[in-house]
Design a protein around this nucleic acid. Sequence first.
DNA 1: CGCTGGCACTCATCTTAGTGGAGTGCTAAA
DNA 2: TTTAGCACTCCACTAAGATGAGTGCCAGCG
Lengths: 357, 357
Amino acid sequence: MVTEVSVGNTQVLNERSLQLLKMLVERYISDGQPVGSRALSKDSDLNLSPATIRNVMADLEDLGLVHSPHTSAGRVPTVSGYRLFVDTLLTIKPVESKDLTRLHQGLSVSEDSADMIGVASRLLSELTQMAGVVTLPKRELVCLRHIEFLSLSHTRVLVIFVTNEQEVHNKIIHTSKVFSPAELQQAANYLNSIYSGRSLDAVRKAVIKDLQKDQERMSQGMLDAVKMAQLAFDQDDKKDDYVLTGETNLMGFSELSNMDRLKSLFEAFSQKQGVIHLLDQCMKAEGVQIFIGEESGYRAFDHCSLVTSSYSVSDEVVGVLGVIGPTRMAYEKIIPFVDMTAKLLGAALNQKSTAPL
Amino acid sequence: MVTEVSVGNTQVLNERSLQLLKMLVERYISDGQPVGSRALSKDSDLNLSPATIRNVMADLEDLGLVHSPHTSAGRVPTVSGYRLFVDTLLTIKPVESKDLTRLHQGLSVSEDSADMIGVASRLLSELTQMAGVVTLPKRELVCLRHIEFLSLSHTRVLVIFVTNEQEVHNKIIHTSKVFSPAELQQAANYLNSIYSGRSLDAVRKAVIKDLQKDQERMSQGMLDAVKMAQLAFDQDDKKDDYVLTGETNLMGFSELSNMDRLKSLFEAFSQKQGVIHLLDQCMKAEGVQIFIGEESGYRAFDHCSLVTSSYSVSDEVVGVLGVIGPTRMAYEKIIPFVDMTAKLLGAALNQKSTAPL
DNA sequence: CGCTGGCACTCATCTTAGTGGAGTGCTAAA
DNA sequence: TTTAGCACTCCACTAAGATGAGTGCCAGCG
């Protein structure tokens, strides 16, 4: 068992101080009021007088773990305080069984994966009473199953491709010359034979490579097909996106009821790109990732915490989901809950993806 | 020129009272403060003393056109007051030329119609500093151009159809038996020959009729095709939807800065169906439609006004757009602006729809 | 040396009272 | 019908006092 924890460089905290910090954070999370020495003294089974607690608090304050809103208020955890709490003091609570059944039930009803993403987001917000967010599976990481071309008019061709998750995507491209339906069919057959099963990202790279190196070895038909593939899988096609629900839940929290903060937060939500960037970072982390308050480095989120977990399809991380709430949130329940939701969403998506084509 | 207006049953207002009401509303809209008799007396060129104005105000209050927030405050327009103002007193201001150029320029850049809807919504919110909303073109009213089937697996068939606005839609259906690609091609050819050019709604009805009446006269192939069409154009497919932008602009208005109101408003936005119902009503009206405050009958909008206009493609109303803001908005500018935006969006969409296939 | 009790002090919050200003309603007179 | 005048109401702002929670510090105790 850990009895001492170093903070910063050389500072050391003993077990008692940590326990008090833990109680303080827990109490503040449940009450929302600055916690005074009296309250801590009564709550703890340490049998310490308020005066002693005050001494400890002074130490914690020196270390930047807690902070007084004003002279005669109790203490409130700082970001570092929360961080220490989350990293080393937290007693994880198992996901409540009623939440678990709701998750299972919710994720089993939906038909296609886009629906599932929406359902997951709604479950996250509903069961936590905060905002839920789920990124759409990264297209680059998703496997190509099948591609098809459809002639719309002379040079306008509709590209349809089905991915791993049974998602159907389409895009209109403009070809350099006119193709007959038969030619298009041939091209599709060729592309399917060589590219299907690979991730979109891999396909994109392979296309570029093939165009550079193997050009002389290919027939005109093959070349045309690959050129069309290039247009079809062109990079900056559709931006990454996410499904955010329950934003309005955030309006209930007093720490966010300041209109200016709320406004910039909601603006960030509709701007999307900043949030996407943040979620991208979370995806790299693989597993549960937590940003507390200003840790995210994104001003709009200064008074929020973000708890995320990446989710995977066939052992490949394809997206990330999580909840957004005030820094003062019940981490011990939210963390396992987010983790579980990610696992279940991954499993549900996986089931679709391995279903017979 | 109108010199008298009847309100309610028998009450009559003379020109002077109307002019004063007009000034009061205009002043309140620009200032946001209750308007007192002194201010009106000075502003008007009627050379009336404040006392006289007060008598007129008392009349207006009796008629329910204005109202005092408290004993010693000025007057504020009521919903009926606004309504009278908007219906008969308003001096429409032409759309500012800089707004006009922004609209033209914005609506000319986008490629496909879905983009265009988004751009229109953003323009509405940006140029009015309120929230902009645009419904997606009603699918039932949009014409079918082309339909195609693509076999995914044994009984799962991907239906692709292109509509008037160059929009591509797709849907997965489950057929009762397995079809070969050739059979699917035949079915598509058949459906295209008899249904293309009609509105989706018309197609849906025709399909049902054909299945009931002409069944004996059809070959098995034709029958299969029509049955697939029935699945493809099944009613409750994708619900009507809208693009709402600039919601955060609404947070700036003091009349909406009450957290409870704001919350229910934003909940209404994400619930969508209530708003859709409201917008549907607006669509029936053809032309500019205005809901002031509680007029909408939708509690969440109690403190908002909604100014909408339907937009048309090839002389057929297909959707509606508008702005949402506080009841205290500059109607004389917003009304022509919304009207203009609707016309320009319709024109822009029309251009796409008549482009060569 | 760590812990505790006591005391002075600070600060937010709440209540109360007082003041000024804006604007009304009413009435009597032009 | 319009106007001037006056009493009245109510909001918004400020100041002052009371209350209570909680701290910091210090001296004493085990």
